[in-house]
């Protein structure tokens, strides 16, 4: 996901004191990637939209504190992941509080879900995972991030991240095969 050329441009704008330009450039470069990653974690568009707004505001408030010692994308993902977790904790529609059938029905009725029957099953299986496994799985499976990159976003050891991913894969395969 990292875009060195774009990241340098953002840094240059910030150093020149052109904060708004830097922010605008950052949003146009990263908002789609952030949105889809958030969407993979929370599934529904309305939730993803709310979270993305908060994420962008947090980025604006803290971009000057970013040290540029680590990759910008890891920092952005970290903010997005934290917001997702906060949202999940607050949200009454929390996926693991409702049954898989109910979740599947909600997703089926969602006008912004464009997947086939198999995607419906897959997303429902992902939604049934515990928060950490779900987040690790989405970063690894869909974003193809290395465990070391996921580690900079979520913390913890590489070993525990590997275990989370392994458990997530097993649970999803079991869910899809049994449904």
């Amino acid at each position: 996901m990292s875009n060195p050329t774009e990241d340098n441009q953002i840094k240059a704008y910030l150093l020149a004191g052109e904060d708004e330009k830097a922010f605008q450039f950052l949003v146009s470069t990263y908002q789609k990637k952030l949105y889809y990653q958030i969407r993979r974690i929370v599934t529904f568009h309305d939730d993803a939209d709310d979270i993305l707004q908060e994420v962008l505001i947090n980025i604006w408030k803290n971009i000057k504190n970013f040290k540029w010692e680590s990759a910008l994308n890891s920092w952005l993902y970290r903010i997005a992941t934290n917001e997702c977790l906060q949202h999940i904790r607050k949200n009454k529609k929390r996926s693991n509080q409702i049954s898989a059938d109910e979740y599947q029905n909600l997703l089926h009725a969602d006008v912004f879900f464009d997947g086939d029957e198999f995607e419906l099953k897959l997303q429902t299986a992902i939604a049934q995972l515990p928060d950490k496994q779900r987040i690790v799985f989405t970063y690894k499976y869909f974003e193809d991030l290395k465990y070391e990159e996921i580690q900079t976003i979520l913390g913890g050891s590489v070993g525990s991240l590997k275990a989370s991913y392994h458990h997530a894969v097993k649970k999803i395969e079991e869910f899809v095969n049994s449904n």
Binding site: F23, V27, H45, Q53, K61, D114
Partner: peptide
């Protein structure tokens, strides 16, 4: 994974363009 070709997540029309403008307006009020 090798077969995934279509993104199942749709968005409202012009969502990202509108969102960019919305975010810029928000930060100007901050």
């Amino acid at each position: 994974k090798k077969k995934i070709s279509k993104n199942p997540f749709a968005t409202p029309e012009n969502y990202f363009e509108d969102n960019e403008k919305k975010a810029l307006q928000k930060i100007k009020s901050l």
